[in-house]
């Protein structure tokens, strides 16, 4: 996306309002919706990937070594990863902490 939406003129729009930058919504930060953040304890992680598969916001990355990383740019803080983690390796803490 070249311009912020309040600067887009009618001339900037594609024919038929087609959006021809696939997946450009990934510039949009949903991380600031969060009131709780996930805290990840590597030592308890068994690398099962359960958190990864259940994340509705694609905010968990599986690293090459099998451990995971939260992408706080997108994480909305829903807490599914903490709830579903079989070993309690993820806990949710208040964002202001």
């Amino acid at each position: 996306m070249a311009k912020p939406e309040n600067e887009i003129t009618w001339r900037d729009l594609e024919v038929g309002i087609v959006v021809n930058e696939p997946g450009n919504a990934s510039v949009y930060c949903t991380g600031d919706w969060r009131s709780q953040r996930p805290v990840y304890a590597t030592e308890r992680c068994i690398k099962c990937g359960t958190c990864y598969i259940y994340c509705p916001d694609m905010a968990i990355k599986i690293l090459r070594d099998g451990y995971i990383e939260h992408d706080l740019y997108y994480c909305k803080g829903c807490g599914i990863c903490a709830q579903e983690c079989p070993t309690g390796a993820i806990t949710m803490v208040e964002e202001e902490e």
């Binding site: 997946g23 990937g49 990864y52 740019y73 997108y74 829903c78």
Partner: peptide, 21 residues
């Protein structure tokens, strides 16, 4: 470890505005 065998490619990408959870 099945979750780790799944392709990490996404075709519906983050930045979508669905509610938490």
């Amino acid at each position: 470890y099945a979750s780790r065998l799944v392709s990490q490619k996404e075709y519906f990408v983050p930045g979508h505005r669905a509610c938490q959870g």
